[in-house]
Design a protein around this nucleic acid. Structure first.
Length: 573
RNA sequence: GCGCCUCUAGCUCAAUUUGGCAGAGCAACGGACUCUUAAUCCGCAGGUUCUGGGUUCAAGUCCCAGGGGGCGUACCA
């Protein structure tokens, strides 16, 4: 598309995308040549008017899993770069609390059966979660934003959004409906019900009967919104029936009545609501998960509704793929996958932002939460850090590093000089006798504040990792004396002789130091005719067996050094 | 059916957004180390970038066609 010099692209942009020019000029001023960056962020913003309204939203029907973070971070990165370009930028984040409870949230009991079909704001909060409704509880947990005045605690709490440095203007759809701001759009859609049916039919082959209206009233008798069928709009009210069999996940009460569709008495179906938000808020850019972006999917239908019924422009779409953890498909309703607050607590915010934002949205991200992947992530982030701080950084590298920082607009932090691989930090952290900082000082001398801070980030990550995945971290529980005796009985003759000989050597050992202990292990092995070169496992399985009931463990020398002479000799028998 | 993603060293993947000498980690191989572990150090190799066309001074990267794999989606938001 862009070939040779930038001439044709500039000419094209002049015609269609005015804000591109300002940016190109600034970029040229900054790097002193005609090159410009054109990342997915730039491309999305190039289609925007100078007044940028970015919107994202979440249906709070369960605990948010890490996949939900991708949309948030994509929108946040767009908002940051837009602001950086000097554009008038708004980042809105909505709580879709008018949506119906359409399944029982994972981890909650049968008591939610009676609430199926009600709006999320009308269902109670699950046990143990803060908030006065299901919507409040899950949205608050994810964002740290608490709307509810009835809640005993006051104000917002630091949540994942705060940790990640995401600043958005929050709104609730229930408030928007109640305020009457959507009444005009609702009226338009109801008047144009035939067109809406036509669009549904044409795009997704969905056939609706002639009396169907695109509106879901809240049943005045049972309070459900997912079970009502509306007909006969007279400009003031709609007729509706709360049907027992409209959907198979909830059962309506059978009530019939007439009600005004305005002022929060009900909601628009999803695809119409999406288009309605575009028009009401003047949204210029909005990403969407791939599930919405399929051909004849919800985005296409919403676009057609916006263009043909509401006569409003469709925001620039940023379709994004899923973000999976360990290759597992995540589902908040089934409780699969780590919830987002867990990952946010574990990783330094800039690392998580980096991991998510370095991949262009259309490509899927799979992050394995294991030692090699974490180690690699830190190494790659540090490489970008060094390069961003140096003079050889490309514009796109700079942009990526900037949007990865938790604090917007912060200067580039001092690059750490202590080279501490995450797997080494993890290894040190899991051995209580070792102090990470003590160890680093013994090698590097005093460390700078910048190094100490970054090291502390890694240590926190290591501690969380050990807590969450002790199996992968290689944590070992020390056996008690009787368990150790039991393990000892399972060893073979050679191993018994080895342990006896080792005890003998260690008794004589002074001073009690890791390196000498390790040597003693090898010497003891040779003493009893075991060649450590070929039969090392025989030796170490004996040691780890009586200590942990395991075949492997932390480096034996330093471990025994920590255990102390008396304790070690007791355990070896 | 339709849409999106993907195919690169034995394996897992970078480099595809910005076309510019195809790169890491692990495994293998050679060597060092009397120190086991997903965990010592040095070194050496490793490629028709799925296939076929096209654009270009230049293509893993862009375009067209074909093949393999994955995911999404069809009156729920």
């Amino acid at each position: 598309m862009l070939r040779g010099l930038a001439g044709p692209a500039v000419a094209h942009s002049l015609l269609t995308e005015p804000c591109w020019l300002g940016f190109a000029a600034r970029c040229e001023a900054r790097c002193g040549r005609g090159s410009h960056i054109m990342t997915w962020i730039d491309k999305a913003l190039d289609g925007c008017p100078p007044q940028v309204v970015i919107n994202d939203s979440k249906t709070p029907s369960g605990r948010a899993h890490v996949g939900s973070l991708r949309g948030v971070l994509i929108h946040d990165a767009l908002a940051r770069v837009a602001r950086e370009r000097g554009l008038d930028t708004t980042f809105m984040y909505g709580c879709d609390d008018m949506d119906a409870v359409d399944e029982i949230p994972h981890g909650t009991g049968k008591q939610f059966v009676e609430h199926l079909g009600k709006p999320l704001w009308a269902a109670p909060a699950p046990e143990g979660l803060r908030g006065d409704s299901m919507a409040e509880a899950y949205f608050g947990e994810f964002t740290g934003k608490w709307f509810g005045a009835a809640d005993s605690q006051v104000g917002d709490t630091p949540g994942p959004f705060d940790a990640l440095g995401v600043q958005a203007e929050f709104y609730r759809m229930s408030d928007v409906y109640r305020s009457g701001r959507l009444d005009d759009v609702i009226d338009t859609f109801l008047q144009a019900a035939a067109d809406v049916r036509q669009i549904y039919l044409r795009l997704s082959g969905a056939e609706r009967s002639d009396d169907w209206l695109p509106f879901q009233p809240i049943c005045e008798r049972c309070g459900r919104i997912g079970t009502t069928y509306a007909t006969d709009y007279d400009g003031e009210t709609v007729a509706y029936e709360c049907r027992p069999d409209l959907v198979d996940w909830a059962s309506g009460c059978g009530h019939r009545g007439r009600i005004s569709p305005f002022g929060g008495n009900g909601k628009l179906p999803w695809k119409l609501e999406w288009a309605a938000k575009w028009k009401l808020f003047g949204i210029s850019i909005e990403g969407a998960g791939k599930d919405h972006m399929a051909a004849s999917g919800s985005h296409e239908v919403s676009s057609a509704l916006a263009r043909h019924v509401l006569q409003c422009p469709v925001p620039v779409a940023v379709p994004y793929e899923f973000f999976t953890l360990g290759g597992a498909k995540m589902s908040s309703s089934r409780g699969i996958g780590m919830n987002s607050s867990g990952l946010v607590e574990m990783l330094p915010p800039q690392l998580l932002r980096y991991l998510v934002l370095r991949t262009q949205p259309r490509r899927s991200i799979n992050f394995d939460l294991d030692v090699p992947s974490l180690t690699k992530a830190f190494v790659e982030y540090e490489r970008l850090w060094r390069s961003a701080a140096g003079s050889d950084a490309s514009e796109s590298q700079r942009q990526l590093f900037d949007v990865a920082q938790a604090e917007e607009g912060a200067p580039i932090p001092i690059v750490p000089t202590v080279d501490a691989r995450f797997d080494s930090v993890l290894s040190l952290t899991q051995q209580p006798h070792m102090s990470l900082f003590g160890h680093v000082r013994s090698i590097h001398g005093d460390v700078s504040e910048a190094d100490a801070d970054w090291l502390a980030c890694k240590e926190t990550t290591a501690e969380e990792f050990i807590r969450v995945r002790p199996d992968l971290a290689g944590m070992f529980r020390m056996l008690n004396v009787s368990e150790a005796a039991e393990q000892r009985s399972m060893l073979d003759e050679r191993q018994h002789r080895f342990l006896a000989r080792l005890a003998q050597r260690l008794t004589e050992l002074s001073p009690w130091e890791a390196r000498d202990i390790q040597d003693a292990i090898f010497d003891a092995a040779r003493d009893v005719g075991i060649d450590p070169k070929t039969d090392a496992p025989v030796v170490f399985e004996a040691i780890y067996g009586v200590l942990f009931g395991s075949q492997t463990g932390p480096r034996a020398g330093s471990l025994l050094a920590f255990l102390g002479k008396r304790e070690t000799l007791t355990r070896l028998g």
